[in-house]
Simulated scan of single mutants.
Amino acid sequence: MKIIETIQELRKELQPHRSNAIGLVPTMGYLHEGHLSLIRRAKQECNTVVVSIFVNPLQFGPNEDFERYPRDLERDAQLAEEVGADLLFTPSAAEMYPRPIRTRVTVAGLTERLCGASRPGHFDGVTTVVSKLFHIVEPDRAYFGQKDAQQAAVIQQMVQDLNFPLEVIVCPTVREPDGLALSSRNVYLSEEERRQATVLFQSLQEAEKRWRDGAFSSAAEMEAFIRDRIETQPLAVIDYVSVLRYPALELPEDLHGPLIVAVAVFFGKTRLIDNVVLPGKEEAACFAR
């Protein structure tokens, strides 16, 4: 695996590989099994796999954790190489933004709920940096995790609207044995916060089971059920619990899928997100069989 720090060098390195499939796994580093599962999937489907590691300042708000976001490039490089990455792109902020940026990519509608409501400007930062990476790497496929389901929907919309010649692959959330979704921010949690955080997936699982049994009459009823479950843990401070159409991220008129049931909850200073996507009628019927 080769580590590359500049856009010019990466483009030069990729030039001989353009006739074959190139896969991109964009990350902010501090890799965990969720990231590694994306790299493995890319390796199965592509001839050349590029992993980017860039903690993007554009997607952090003024009171968020940009400065303390976990970083360990040496460890990340070892892990990425072990699972098959061919190129590791590790640009500096000065390389990606050599002058104050005046152009941003905005996806309207999908970014105004869920994390977009809690983190103004966040998704403009995400779509801007991802569009830059798409132009720099020119991948045939790009890989994202279902844990960041809103991000995945936003990027799919951007790719469709702006005619990027690539396929966005969304891969399943990877979890700890107790169900907690893997996240680079999990390292912030104290032992007790970590224990209580398992309520997120537990509440989503219980809500999904009740939904499949037809126990809810409205999205509001489902949201209230999840809130009540999460609030059994004293350290949990809910940012949002939302049931929306997926991937349109619109308010549902009924509970026929596909739907996303998404939560964001603080444990101490650490904000965790999780979700489940509930299938449409045909998928649900297959599940029932």
Rank of each mutant, 00 (worst) to 15 (best):
T6R: 09
Q8D: 12
E9R: 14
L10P: 00
R11H: 04
R11V: 12
E13S: 09
Q15L: 14
S19T: 14
N20M: 06
N20F: 05
A21E: 11
G23M: 06
T27G: 00
T27S: 02
G29P: 06
H35W: 03
H35M: 06
A42S: 13
Q44W: 00
T48Q: 12
V51Y: 10
P57A: 04
Q59Y: 07
G61Y: 06
R71W: 05
R75Y: 11
A77M: 10
V83N: 05
T90C: 15
A94Q: 14
M96Y: 03
P98H: 02
R102P: 00
T103G: 01
V105A: 12
V105Y: 07
S118Q: 12
F123G: 01
D124Q: 15
D124F: 05
G125T: 04
G125D: 11
S131M: 09
S131Q: 11
L133E: 08
I136L: 06
E138T: 14
E138L: 14
P139I: 06
D140W: 00
F144Y: 15
Q146W: 00
Q150D: 04
Q150M: 08
Q151A: 04
Q151R: 08
Q151P: 06
M158R: 10
V159A: 15
D161T: 13
L162G: 00
E167Q: 14
V168L: 14
T173L: 06
V174W: 03
E176D: 14
E176K: 11
S184I: 08
Y188T: 02
R194D: 02
L200Q: 12
F201Y: 15
R210L: 13
R212Q: 14
S218L: 04
S218H: 01
A219L: 07
A219Q: 02
A220V: 04
A220M: 02
A224K: 15
I226R: 06
D228I: 00
P234Y: 04
D239A: 08
D239K: 10
Y240T: 00
L244R: 12
A248Y: 03
P252L: 07
E253F: 02
H256M: 09
L259N: 02
V263G: 07
F267N: 03
G268Y: 10
L272Y: 07
V277L: 14
A284W: 12
R289I: 09
R289L: 12
